[in-house]
Design a protein around this nucleic acid. Structure first.
Lengths: 236, 236
DNA sequence: GAGTGGTCTAGACCACTTT
DNA sequence: AAGTGGTCTAGACCACTCG
């Protein structure tokens, strides 16, 4: 986070989020920003590109960079938000129950899902409660060759913090798939399902900076507690 | 699409998609690509950035750009795919039934959703069938000050083609929200709901290049026919 | 005509990986 | 030591919007 363009991005973002520059207003021109931040045009443009990609501004040729209305749909779910990070944007009292934690030699399914040839796999099953209702069931499978030393405390706190801060690995990107599936008896027993028979299933593959696949997750949400927000630019 | 970096992007993408360069292999280095395409490093890097953002490659410092496994999760839903575009990636026989098409002065709800002060709004209700099953209910509201002249044929074919090709407007970005909602009696009547009581609701706000909001859509999917795929890079 | 963003170029230094 | 990507700079021309 020491790069100049990232600092400028953060500085501009702060001004947008604090409503110092309001939705509908224009940012200073690239020329202006060059002077303000004592940076080259290219550096400024890198900063603006980050704002652009994350849906904070829209550039209009001949006019400038307009600030968009980020409140319209609040923006909790961008990037690879882990549950702990997500939690901070959620209302209500959120807790984690570690239901299962084991380490075992990778079976066929895991070798396939995690592209492993040998070694151990961690399986972690966690139940997430919101206001004391059990509404999310997370099952993680981790490549034990990449990540090791997972304990119940870690699983109870934050896996991502452990991987990034303690192991010093860098989580880089993920692929997610969202579908709706019937709840099994087992799942109905573990969660407070009310009258629902379906679960929203988010399958997720997470990768490190060097493109190593280290985690496969199935996150099953009670339908009424599920919400996903997306910002997308058109690519033609 | 005439920019040099976009052409290089497309060229590299073709090679990746045709398996000319396979997953796990490295692209030529930036230096190599500069020579191959007779371009500056900056231009090459712009092309690679597009591949990066769309999940086709991962850059590893000191090594190069690895091609990722795009097949792992197929990638139908990136950008603002309209239904017609989506259709092409779907299996099965897909049809559209225009159920309602009207134009009326914006009421309070529409003024709020579309940020209008006055003028007309189009309301279009369409039912999408897959293999003759009615599984998706799309309701579009369009700002009549921006988009005009919509007929049943257009609604039946492709709204986006009309807006982009006939009206010459440029669709630029959208915000989407995915939730699950109970199906109303009306919706149950319009769709083939089998035993399902829930619908996946995708609310979408679509904007033009100059940041004008021109469309608000509610797309309701029968749960078993819904699938959403997402690629995300971590922003810390 | 002045100002805006969009694109492209050429050159430089750094931290990192590999041999 | 050589090669890689990450960052930063300076200068140029274009198409576009606005007054």
């Amino acid at each position: 986070m020491s790069a100049k363009y990232q600092k400028i991005y953060q500085s501009l973002l702060d001004q947008i989020e604090s409503k110092n520059i309001k939705a509908g207003e224009y940012l200073p021109s690239e020329n202006e920003l060059m002077k303000q931040y004592d940076a080259s045009r290219d550096t400024i443009r890198k900063s603006l590109n980050l704002l652009l990609q994350n849906g904070y501004i829209q550039k209009v040729v001949g006019k400038g960079s307009v600030v968009l209305d980020a409140d319209r749909i609040a923006f909790p779910v961008s990037g690879i938000t882990s549950f702990k990070e997500l939690k901070q944007t959620m209302s209500g009292d959120v807790k984690t129950i570690v239901h299962e934690l084991q380490k075992f030699p990778a079976d066929e399914k895991m070798k396939k899902e995690l592209y492993m040839e040998s070694g151990d796999v961690y399986k972690i099953v966690r139940i997430r409660t919101i206001n004391n209702e059990k509404v999310i069931l997370d099952t993680d499978y981790l490549n034990g060759n990449v990540v090791d030393g997972i304990t119940e405390e870690i699983a109870n706190d934050s896996l991502y913090d452990y991987i990034e801060q303690d192991l010093g690995l860098k989580i880089s990107f993920s692929k997610k798939e969202i579908t709706v599936i019937p709840a099994t008896k087992e799942e109905k027993k573990l969660l407070d399902m009310l009258d629902y028979d379906l679960l929203v299933c988010v399958k997720s593959y997470s990768y490190l900076e060097d493109a190593t696949l280290f985690e496969y997750t199935e996150s099953k949400h009670r339908p009424d507690k599920f919400r996903f927000v997306d910002f997308a630019r058109r690519m033609k």
